[in-house]
Design a protein around this nucleic acid. Structure first.
Length: 421
RNA sequence: GGAAGUGUGGCCGAGUGGUUGAAGGCGCACGCUUGGAAAGCGUGUAUGGGGCAACUCAUCGCAGGUUCGAAUCCUGUCACUUCCGCCA
């Protein structure tokens, strides 16, 4: 959420931003409602002040107070009835107004996002036709999609043997790597309340929701541990000495992917995956620096895994509502779509104070005043996507897959994935 | 899952219908005192909204309700504690 007063005082900034982000918001209606709301609010407060004065007045008898109080109460009731629908409609529009946008973000839709850097690993020249991750992994006996579909439906999968170990190795490697940069490892709940889902920027119910809601409860399966990590400090004043608060959550992530149907083959788009996610709560003046650190860590992890990638500066039209600025890493997946394609593997967003305002995350500034903190998030490693990039890039003509050196200690020294009996 | 109890400011804690936004204490800030420090003394010390300001509105887990008036009464809900049951 943006500051309501800021919105009223910077209407043109908001209008331009809505246009750049290609977001449909009835801003005129919002302004109309907001001004009306403020007028009604003032009237209501005046009536309340009168009522309070009557209730406290020593010169009046109880009967006199009662008589005058009832009049105030009636007026208050009438005003409240008028105010409520105005407030509700204004609020409904208010929550759809997205964050401000970094001035350097390319203006436009998804296609406008700009490649601003590339990884250290060059794209490999294959002397054979690279096979896609499904073929490679199924032949190795480390992936079983059929069983996943049988048990839980499309979009679910089994990792078996070396595949299971590979998930743990990737997750643990990423966790250890960011721990060295000062991130505290955290295991979080895999479920979260509706209110937190909304606060963190995820729609818990309805058709546009990408999350699973648990029937007869106010709980949802989390789509990322970002939700539970920021939830940990929601409604709190974080001690300034503890900032920046750097967390690395390891959790399962669940996504219903209603919008995408169930057609996607393989493990690129699945309903459940494991992800190591970084979240930082910091002072406003540190946010930009932290964002660069998140991006650097993501790059280093994939450089070390020997996976070629490019870094995208995300265009205005493709930013999430909370993101002020966002980078994606896209790995080269040599067999994707049959001919090779870039596929998103990580994403890091600077949410400025937008998410903190919604979740009420504060700190005390030098004057002792409460201020909203800034929050940022970034993927350290999302297992399925990383796994695709890894097996497709490191596959050998004989069907084996070389394990990157940094992962070998986590695989009991294993250097190659080989066919399982 | 059943029963009982509790939920007040940064913290502890008083407060069961009427100048209580909230006693007292701790902590913190400033001042006095001191060669310096400690102790002692004094003053101040919630958050958000509206207003240039005086001031005013809201907030005592959360949401409703009763009442002229609610931290205080009622209902629901969430959390915590204890007891019972169940269980990895």
């Amino acid at each position: 959420m943006l500051d309501r007063r800021y919105i009223l005082e910077n209407q043109e900034v908001i209008r331009t931003n809505l246009k750049n982000r290609m977001v449909q918001v009835d801003f005129d209606r919002f302004l109309e409602l907001e001004y009306e709301r403020r007028e009604l609010q003032k009237e209501l407060e005046a009536v309340r002040a009168e009522g309070n004065a009557v209730a406290k007045a020593k010169g009046l008898t109880v009967d006199e107070r009662r008589a005058q109080g009832i009049v105030c109460k009636q007026k208050e009731g009438a005003l409240t009835a008028k105010l409520k629908p105005v407030e509700e409609e204004a609020q409904a529009i208010y929550v759809t107004i997205p964050n401000l946008t970094y001035e350097g973000s390319p203006v436009g839709g998804e296609d406008a996002s700009a490649t601003i850097a590339e990884g250290k690993t060059p794209m490999r020249q294959f002397d054979f036709k690279p096979r896609d991750h499904i073929d490679v992994m199924e032949d190795l006996g480390i992936l079983n999609l059929t069983a996943g579909a049988k048990v839980a439906g499309g979009g679910f999968y089994y990792f078996i043997g070396q595949g299971a170990l590979l998930e743990l190795a990737l997750s643990r490697y990423a966790l250890d790597y960011v721990m060295k940069a000062g991130y505290t490892p955290v295991i979080t709940p895999d479920l979260a309340r509706d209110s937190l889902m909304q606060g963190a920027g995820f729609v818990p119910r309805g058709n546009e929701s990408n999350t699973y809601h648990l029937e007869d409860s106010d709980l949802n399966l989390i789509a990322t541990s970002e939700i539970t990590l920021v939830g940990m400090v929601a409604d709190e004043v974080v001690e300034t000495s503890k900032l920046p608060l750097k967390l690395a959550g390891l959790s399962h992530c669940f996504r219903s992917e209603r919008a995408h149907g169930s057609a996607t083959r393989g493990i690129y788009r699945v309903h459940q995956f494991t992800k190591t996610e970084m979240v930082v709560v910091c002072l406003p003046e540190d946010a930009e620096k932290v964002h660069m650190e998140l991006r650097r860590l993501e790059q280093e992890i994939f450089d070390n895994l020997g996976i070629p990638y490019r870094v995208l500066e995300i265009a205005t039209g493709d930013l999430g509502a909370a993101a002020y600025r966002k980078f994606d890493l896209e790995a080269w997946m040599p067999a994707r779509n049959g001919i090779g394609a870039w596929g998103e593997i990580t994403s890091t967003s600077n949410c400025t104070d937008f998410q903190a305002r919604r979740l009420n995350i504060k700190y005390r500034d030098g004057q002792g005043k409460l201020q909203f903190a800034h929050t940022l998030n970034g993927t350290a490693l999302s297992v399925c996507r990383a796994m695709i990039a890894l097996v497709e890039n490191h596959q050998q003509a004989d069907g084996t897959v070389e394990i990157p050196e940094v992962l070998q200690p986590y695989m009991g020294g294993l250097k190659k994935l080989t066919p399982q009996r």
